[in-house]
Design a protein around this nucleic acid. Structure first.
Length: 567
RNA sequence: GCGCCUGUAGCUCAGCUGGAUAGAGCAUCGGCCUUCUAAGCCGAAUGUCGAAGGUUCGAGUCCUUCCAGGCGCGCCA
């Protein structure tokens, strides 16, 4: 890799200057007139060496062996940047690597096969998945994939609360709809669920059990209704998620923490710490010791634990299962629990920073410039299914992934429905399809395009150099996106790559610049450009795979005719 | 009142961990269609980076204070 040869050359020069410890940062300048690779080491050394940055830069340049570094020229620019311009061969050498690695291009081994758990969605089984869950599903799945591509062994987990007050209210709501369905008067209880799905479950309950629960509202009967309702909702959620291409390795039930004694064990372990005290008839944990705003109740005065205890028990158990890195993807409306869980697990001796949280901000949806606020189905906001059925799974996933998790976001349905390069998902997919269409036109099997042996130095056009450099950044981009748990960094990269590929492709439009087309007569040039097109295809496809988005070889024009004159 | 997140072009948002003249898409304006897919292409214009201080060779980025918006602050989950 050329970055490494430059790094080595600079290190030798710096050691000669008595600054061997200096950190060498190489970057790709945004402005192509600043060369292919830039280094700011002369600037950072100015303070240390007590000399002007430009003077230091000149001393460095005098000690460089450019040919050995694959560099054509080096310039000192601005306040003292070193700008390297690479030889064409050095630039294009990455194409050989891309074609050789193919489906594996972009993978790295940062994770060293360590285990990491990504917990996400984790909706309670009280209703359909909504927009927040959709954002979480898209983000969590992409974060998990990024970790896989950077060498981690990833476990996708879904935690759900199958007991508690919410579920009781669901059961009561279902029974009310059930009674209505059978022609009786009934009302949804205070704090109950009003969505259309509750009516469906009530009807299904009547279908399966007849009039059995009309008179019977005993605890046993309510238990049966609860289990019935939860099962139906769980099935619906699973279907929503698998249609959204999100598959979990494990579903973890909160009730298991009780039945397996983990809640009691956690209470006992917390009492051992000496941070537990009694006050007002309740049992408290001194979470303020770990930075929480106030101490938290562990056991209420009625003797029952608060939700705080199973949360801590659950995370302790994650650690014991061997997941020493855990990433929880949650909506920002849950950020209040973060300090509590951290305090609880720290009290039990687990390290700071466990678990790690990715909190995403809230989502607004607009259609025709008007905010969409209500869904009859859910009884509140739009559901994941409604959104993904309206705009498609690819677009829904991408739109949630392309924004920073901590940005409040607007989901514009009109923009999502657009089928042109204005729509970023389409732009990336189409750039991929364009490369495929070149292979079809040339009648070559892309898999048969070989990267070795070709003369890649003929790819000397600025558009080609920029495109190749862009492709070479893919692996670094995946690492950075994984390190920052930020899929949007990959989206940005793919859009830039698609833009660079489109610019190259359009410049070579045979009606304008036949000499810049891929399919030129000169066999060596044609082969080199086919290799470049193949590399573009591989990078775009691999990027889309990471995001869980399809990479079609062809996007057909819409079949409906253009609108007829209705004047 | 306290805590977390956010504030960058008319709109939606990036800004690679402190670097060069702050970017992209949409919208706007100008020029291009018998295309390796014109569902497009080329070009132009667009900024008090919420405000004020501070840190240093250098700040959209770091620190302090303030302003605005979202969310959260129960012996609910």
């Amino acid at each position: 890799m050329t970055h490494e040869t430059i790094q080595a050359g600079l290190a030798a020069a710096l050691s000669d200057l008595g600054a061997a410890e200096a950190v060498i940062q190489l970057e790709r300048p945004r402005d192509p007139t600043h060369g292919d690779v830039a280094c700011n080491v002369a600037l950072t050394l100015a303070g240390v060496l007590k000399r002007a940055p430009r003077q230091i830069a000149e001393e460095i340049v005098q000690r460089l062996d450019l040919a050995a570094m694959g560099v054509d020229t080096v310039e000192i620019a601005g306040p003292g940047f070193l700008n390297f311009r690479l030889s064409s061969g050095a630039v294009a050498s990455v194409l050989t690597d891309i074609l050789a690695a193919d489906l594996g291009f972009g993978r790295s081994e940062q994770g060293a096969s360590r285990s990491v758990m990504v917990e996400f969605v984790s909706a309670n089984p009280t209703g359909p998945l909504h927009l927040g869950h959709a954002r979480q599903a898209a983000l969590g799945d992409a974060i998990a994939a990024l970790l896989t591509w950077t060498g981690w062994r990833v476990h996708r987990e879904y935690y759900y609360n199958d007991g508690g007050l919410q579920i009781e209210r669901l059961a009561e709501s279902v029974r009310a709809r059930y009674l209505e369905h059978l022609g009786h008067e009934a009302e949804i209880p205070e704090g109950g669920y009003h969505g259309g799905y509750v009516r469906d479950i009530g009807a299904a309950l009547a279908e399966s059990f007849g009039t059995r629960f009309v008179e019977d509202a005993s605890p046993e009967a309510m238990d049966e209704i609860r289990l019935f309702a939860v099962q139906i909702i769980r099935q619906e959620q699973d279907r929503d998620l698998s249609d959204f291409r999100v598959i979990f390795d494990e579903y973890y039930l909160e009730s298991g923490l009780y039945t397996e004694g983990k809640v009691d064990a956690t209470i006992a372990a917390l009492k051992e710490t000496g941070l537990v005290y009694e006050h007002d008839g309740a049992t408290w944990l001194k979470t303020t010791k770990f930075g929480d705003q106030k101490d938290r109740v562990m056991i209420r005065s009625n003797g029952l634990p608060t939700y705080f205890v199973p949360d801590v028990a659950y995370h302790k158990h994650k650690w014991e299962r061997g997941f020493h890195r855990v990433i929880n993807v949650q909506g920002a409306d849950h950020h209040g629990t973060v300090d509590r869980v951290h305090s609880g697990v720290r009290a039990l001796g687990l390290p700071e920073g466990f678990p790690q949280y990715v909190l995403h901000q809230m989502v607004r949806v607009e259609r025709d410039g008007v905010e969409v606020k209500f869904s009859k189905r859910s009884g509140s906001g739009m559901t994941l299914r409604e959104l993904s059925e309206e705009v498609g799974v690819d677009v829904t996933r991408y739109f949630f992934q392309m924004r920073r998790p901590d940005a409040h976001m607007l989901f514009d349905i009109d923009a999502a429905l657009d089928q042109s390069d204005k729509n970023p998902v389409f732009k990336v997919q189409y750039a991929h399809a364009r490369m495929c269409s070149i292979f079809a036109k040339a009648d070559v099997d892309p898999k048969q395009i070989a990267g070795v042996g070709a003369d890649l130095s003929v790819l000397g056009h600025d558009l080609e150099r920029e495109l190749v450099k862009q492709l070479g950044d893919f692996t670094e981009t995946l690492k950075r996106a994984a390190d920052n748990t930020s899929p949007h960094m990959l989206c940005d990269y793919l859009e830039q790559t698609a833009a660079a590929a489109n610019a190259w492709y359009h410049a070579g439009n045979p009606s304008r610049n036949p000499e810049l087309a891929v399919l030129v007569d000169d066999p060596a040039l044609r082969q080199a450009r086919l290799i470049l097109a193949r590399a573009v295809q591989i990078v775009l496809r691999n990027g889309l795979i990471v995001l869980g988005i399809s990479a079609p070889a062809r996007l057909d024009r819409p079949t409906e005719p253009t609108s007829v004159d209705d004047a």
